[in-house]
Amino acid sequence: MGKKRISYAKWGYIFSIPFVVAFALFTLYPIVYTVFIAFTDLKGAANTTPHLLKDDILKNFKEVLATSQFKQSFGNTWKIWIMNFIPQMGLALLLTAWFTDNRSKIKGQGLFKVAFYMPNIITAATVAIMFNAFFGYPIGPVNDLLIRFHFVDSAQNFLIKKANGQNIVAFIQFWMWFGYTMITLISGVIGIDPSIFEAAEMDGANRVQTFIYVTIPSIRTILLFSLVTSLIGGLNMFDIPLLFLNGGPDNATLTTNVFIYKQAFSGAYLYNRAAAASLIMLCIIVVFSSLLFWLMRDRDAEKAKKLRKQAIKEAKLKAKGVA
């Protein structure tokens, strides 16, 4: 009589219950409900009884896609993200090249890293209003500096120009995120086998060559990870554009999330349209996050699984052969 093996499998289920319940209540149900609202006539401040649309079930989606504001906000979101991402990645790569170069050991790296990451930890809401104050007209630090150093004769009202609004929002995003991207890339470079660099050095590769032909290919995955996470974050841009200029001037910094917020919570109470707009964004984000999921898949585990399957197949074949 062997000792009876107790199965602990049920504890796996029991310990997952809190997560599953909380997820179902606070994420899954709201998503399902959002989907439902997108097909209803729900609008108005105190209205909580949605009715499914009878004449045209896709009316809300059609309306959203037809409004010029949504199209504009979608374009703005991409434009601002690209304007922030390219210089951000460029600078992060440059700093990574400098900081990981063992031929020119930079002193004070710890201090630089801590300082460059600092903007990322500060409340975005505060940052937005801070920059709004900095670019203030007629009194603000930027105007003060420009006048003091004789770049301009009189105070400029920067924030009424559309291009300025977008550029500054992109700059704020850049300012908040380049340190994060830099630290991410540096940690990737540190993970590279140092013997590769020694070999490159032996072969007489200079700094630039080493970085372009050895370092960058080795951190491909992390570069893609940064790209996709930044893109998903960029598509959700909200705090800065809302509080910096409230989407203005003339909707120049209206991002899709600000658009959704304004449709639903800021006077209009068009919950159905806002829901439709958020679902359109959700679809786009799902596409990109599945890309990220695919990039981050566990390659070793996948290999092991394949090998195991192969082993089982072979064993079966053998068994058949014997039979």
Binding site: G12, Y29, P30, I31, I260, A275, M281, I285, S289, S290
Partner: peptide, 28 residues
Amino acid sequence: YEWKLRDGFFGFIMGVMMIPGQVTSIGF
């Protein structure tokens, strides 16, 4: 623990990881 739905559950968690709170806000 080794349980039947484990891998599926983990795959699910990976899948919903990047869903931002804002897209569920209307329903919430």
